[in-house]
Nucleic acid binder design. Structure first.
Length: 108
DNA sequence: AACGTGACTGCCC
DNA sequence: CGGGCAGCCACGT
């Protein structure tokens, strides 16, 4: 059965909105959860549209845990500061410690 | 209507 | 070990 593509965006937002505080997830995991492992790009695209929304897009990072983003919201350090404020720890490489905060959709 | 781009990831050479 | 290409979905020009 065919489902509206636009629904893909809404699903992404729904997942992001369910990310627990102090946890992070990756584009790949969201995409995989939606049924398309390789749709990570689209997930990022959905995030782009989520800027300005109430969605904690700062909890979504790439598979390395690096804070990627068109402009990291409105400042290159906003994301990091925000995550740290939520209790998320960072590694020496400057990315989120996924090993300690990685959250997978459906595994809440 | 078509092509290119974009907050990604994985596989192939 | 490093670089390149393909796959996925929606949007912009």
């Amino acid at each position: 059965m065919s489902e509206p593509r636009q629904d893909f965006f809404e699903r992404v937002w729904a997942v992001v909105a369910e990310i627990p505080l102090g946890r992070v997830t990756t584009y790949g995991h969201i995409a995989e959860y939606l049924g398309s492992r390789s749709a990570a790009r689209t997930v990022g695209w959905a995030m782009n549209a989520a800027i300005g929304s109430d969605l904690p897009c700062h909890r979504v990072v790439n598979r390395f845990g690096a804070l990627t983003g068109r402009r990291h919201f409105e400042g290159p350090f906003v994301m990091e500061e925000r995550l740290r404020s939520e209790g998320v720890t960072f590694t020496d490489e400057g990315h989120v410690d996924l090993d300690a905060h990685l959250w997978i959709p459906g595994e809440e």
